[in-house]
Design a protein around this nucleic acid. Structure first.
Length: 269
DNA sequence: AAATTCTCCTGAAGGC
DNA sequence: TGCCTTCAGGAGAATT
């Protein structure tokens, strides 16, 4: 399931094939994604790619006359094809370039492909997003300030894209474990010092996951079809019933805010 | 305003 | 062996 490291890995894979190239056409075979793929995406045709960027888990392909906005949802992936390959099941659209094709596959169809008549990054979907976790704008002080009087579980708090973007279910569990904070603790009842530790843990786990090419649990693949290797470094996610690496206690699993959460009762308070 | 619930969808896994 | 049920999950929308 793509979180920030998986999107970043994908972005790095497709960027060299898109930069400065002209989009020949976009073949949409299945427009029923999270929102219907608008006919306006065809405005990208014959336009030269100015830049390919990531904001949160969105990929922005900026052209001369607007931008394509793409999201992998929870089961989406992009592949770069350099020869003709017949589309398979769940291959919903292709972005066709002169010498290569970017193909989108998404079994669950929670992905997104939209068009924006602007290159200024002001899409409504991006308007209220919080800071990038790997940027200078993100800090323990930021989390602490935003958490004042908030009673929801801290795990839900750090997964809220208005607070900080890109922290999905896996890395939320991981970073809270690293910071020694119980995932169900009320967000407003965490000290500044502990938020500083958490901010550091979030940065660290995301940066390491990017280095490993993301986390492949079931089906994530990068733009060449290869898996990511960060699953090997997961400390708590998916380890319910196994021993905590720090203290040997049994790792617990509990649903918090409709999402599976993994933690050590002994190490996390 | 904040918190919770609902929704989209398919494939994997579990039960009998 | 096979059918049926349950669950997972990103994140905006709807609801309380």
């Amino acid at each position: 399931m793509p979180e920030l490291p998986e999107v970043e890995t994908t972005l790095r894979g497709i960027e060299p094939f898109l930069r400065n190239r002209v989009i020949q056409r976009i073949d949409v075979r299945e427009p029923r994604l999270r929102w219907p793929v608008p006919g306006a995406v065809q405005r990208a045709c014959q336009q030269r790619v100015q830049s390919v960027r990531r904001r949160a888990k969105y990929i922005l392909i900026e052209l001369e006359n607007g931008s394509l906005l793409l999201h992998l949802g929870m089961s989406g992936s992009l592949r770069v094809l350099t020869e003709v390959v017949a589309p398979g099941k769940h291959d919903h659209f292709d972005i066709v370039l002169k010498r290569s094709t970017i193909r989108f596959n998404d079994p669950r169809r929670f992905g997104v492909l939209l068009w924006r008549d602007a290159v200024d990054g002001t899409h409504p979907l991006l308007a209220s997003l919080g800071p990038e976790p790997l940027s200078k704008d993100f800090s323990g002080a930021h989390l602490y300030q935003r958490s004042k009087d908030r009673k929801l579980a801290i795990k839900n708090f750090i997964m809220d894209g208005r607070v900080v973007v890109g922290v999905g279910n896996i890395y939320a569990s991981e970073s809270l474990y690293m910071a020694g904070i119980h995932p169900a603790r009320a967000a407003g009842r965490v000290s500044l010092a502990r938020y500083e530790g958490l901010a550091g843990a979030i940065r660290d786990v995301l940066a390491r996951a990017i280095k490993q090419g993301g986390t492949t649990l079931r089906d994530f693949a990068d733009s060449t079809g290869s898996p990511g290797y960060f699953a090997l470094e997961l400390l708590v996610y998916g380890r319910a019933g196994q021993d905590c690496f720090q203290c040997g206690a049994i790792i617990r699993q509990k649903v918090i805010g409709q999402r599976s959460s993994f933690y050590c009762l002994n190490c996390q308070t």
